[in-house]
Design a protein around this nucleic acid. Structure first.
Length: 369
DNA sequence: AACACCGCCAACCGCTCACAA
DNA sequence: ATTGTGAGCGGTTGGCGGTGT
């Protein structure tokens, strides 16, 4: 433990050290902790404040330990019913917005600190492939992580990693510079073994049309579509015995099929990932089929059960008659369209769990929407 | 040692949405 | 229906620290 003199000396701490030091935790546990006696000001950050708080002269920029202490102490005692009143009563020359941000992104006691794990990284990638840059949604699936943290991690690490793998970080498809070589490879896979395809519905926000079809009856895809399933030519998709039928009012669906191994992974494409979906030739290629037919013809028995279980579960949650839902084609039924059920979120939970873990975890999924 | 460059990340900005008056 | 306010979100910025020359 450092002496107070050491702690009080700004020279001993870089900004990052101060922000990250373990005594933040100490402070959180003990609001009366007075370890921050140092007068640390950031004159360069003394601006006029946010537009939302332009009436006051408020401080901007990095938070000093004293400010952190005041904020933590106040919230520990009074909570934060109204952020706009927090700075006033906490004795801070900050706007409420800044206080809220500081609390949520840094001072909240339930925050996890330290580097992202490989598992967290994979979850981020998986959910991002589905939801796109919806950092807050992604962060909800990473306990103790904030949207800001996830966003920064994405921009500083994952993005580069994907690019280095020849993947477009927005669409998770192959970058154009990598397409030429990959396209021929995948095209060969199609010709030789009927390996992997993507079937896609069309525009984002459009009602979900069908997305499922037996592989063998599909017409040959247009040349450009075989360039796209870059992200599924990975071990995770080749080894995950995943199948589920999901629908979304927000996102177009895609179904990833490895016919050679009978592995299927339907998913949603994030809106930025549908560049090909607006292509007419792609639209023509995607045709409608009965989902039950698909399941029966192409899936092993155990997988069919999983399909049915999930369909039932979804319909149950929505108050929809399962048998009714199973009767016809799973296109944009009125009940789905009018529902407030967040299929995007559902999908994000499901896919992150399924892709990263064993299928047996299906029953453990939280349906807390 | 000095400087330049670069990556990380905390914080800000501007926007949208929800809700109350 | 309109307006004002607050909360939340995603994009962006800029300072700091590490690294290379």
């Amino acid at each position: 433990m450092m002496s107070e003199a050491e702690v009080s000396s700004p020279a001993h701490f870089s900004k990052r050290d101060l922000l990250r030091s373990s005594f933040i935790n100490e402070l959180l546990q003990n609001p009366k902790c007075s370890v921050f006696s140092v007068e640390r000001v950031f004159p360069q950050n003394l601006g006029m404040g946010h537009r939302c708080c332009s009436k006051q002269r408020i401080k901007r920029g990095l938070w000093s330990p004293e400010e952190d202490e005041k904020l933590v102490r106040y919230i520990n005692i009074h909570g934060h019913k109204s952020w706009s009143s927090v700075p006033k009563y906490a004795g801070l020359q900050r706007c409420g917005k800044s206080c809220r941000l500081r609390w949520i992104n840094y001072l909240r006691p339930d925050l996890k600190r330290g580097s992202f794990t490989a598992e967290e990284e994979q979850i981020i990638i998986d959910i991002h492939r589905i939801l796109g840059n919806r950092w807050a949604q992604i962060a909800k699936h990473l306990p103790g992580r904030t949207d800001n943290e996830v966003k920064n991690f994405w921009n500083s690490c994952i993005k580069k990693k994907l690019i280095s793998q020849g993947l477009d970080p927005q669409t998770h498809n192959l970058l154009s510079s990598h397409r030429r070589s990959s396209a021929s490879t995948i095209s060969n896979m199609h010709q030789n073994s009927n390996s992997i395809f993507i079937m896609s519905s069309h525009t984002p926000n459009a009602p979900v049309k069908t997305t499922f079809q037996t592989f063998s009856s599909l017409p040959k895809p247009p040349p450009n579509i075989v360039q796209t399933p870059s992200s599924i030519v990975t071990s995770e998709y080749q080894t995950s015995p995943i199948i589920s039928n999901k629908f979304s009012s927000d996102f177009p669906c895609e179904l990833l099929i490895d016919n050679a191994s009978n592995i299927c992974s339907p998913s949603y494409m994030n809106p930025t990932a549908v560049e090909l979906s607006n292509n007419e030739s792609v639209a023509n290629w995607v045709s409608r089929v009965n989902i039950d037919d698909f399941s029966a013809q192409t899936l092993e028995e155990g997988t069919q059960v999983l399909v049915q279980q999930e369909k039932d579960k979804i319909c149950e949650d929505m108050g929809t008659d399962v048998r009714e839902a199973n009767k016809g084609y799973l296109e944009s039924s009125a009940s789905f369209e009018s529902s407030n059920f967040d299929f995007g979120l559902l999908e994000s939970v499901l896919s992150s769990e399924f892709i990263s873990h064993d299928v047996s975890c299906m029953d453990e999924l939280a349906w807390n929407f």
